[in-house]
Amino acid sequence: MPILAARDQDAVRKEFQRIQGPVKLVVFSQELVAGDLCRQNEQLVREVAELDDRITVEVLNPQIDRERTEQYGVDQVPAIVVEGARDYGIRFFGVPHGYEFSNLIDAIIVASSGEPQLTEATKASLAGLTGDVHIKVFSTPT
């Protein structure tokens, strides 16, 4: 049974008209750690990717694909990395339902263009950063 209802699919397809280039969603699944959640996450990502042929999906198992998982800095499952022309450092830990789902869609669109929607002042400040910045955003589905 699909996770996304027909009207959700239509809404996402409409959003995806703004996609400007290829996007890869790298999914991390480990059956023995969180089987149900990993299956749900993988299904949701595949359903999203089916809505636009510029989106591709790769599934990695942290226990098997250890080196690549480490390179991506992923230490939890389920997880999703959203990659555009490069790995921008966007990660989702946990199944992105509800509010996080719209952020996933937004992440796909911004990663596809590499053009963030921020003010010029913000972009200038970020360009001058001299240290690394790791932002964690905790949320719940509702």
């Binding site: 966007i90 911004v110 590499g114 970020l126 955003v137």
Partner: peptide, 29 residues
């Protein structure tokens, strides 16, 4: 998460991680 992920795209120094709090109770705690 929206601002965080746009900042991640804007700068190679920024990463953005969304964490579903109920699925990762230890991390949330």
């Amino acid at each position: 998460m929206r601002l965080a992920q746009h900042m991640a795209v804007a700068s190679e120094r920024v990463t953005a991680t969304a964490i579903e709090a109920t699925e990762f109770p230890d991390l949330s705690r």
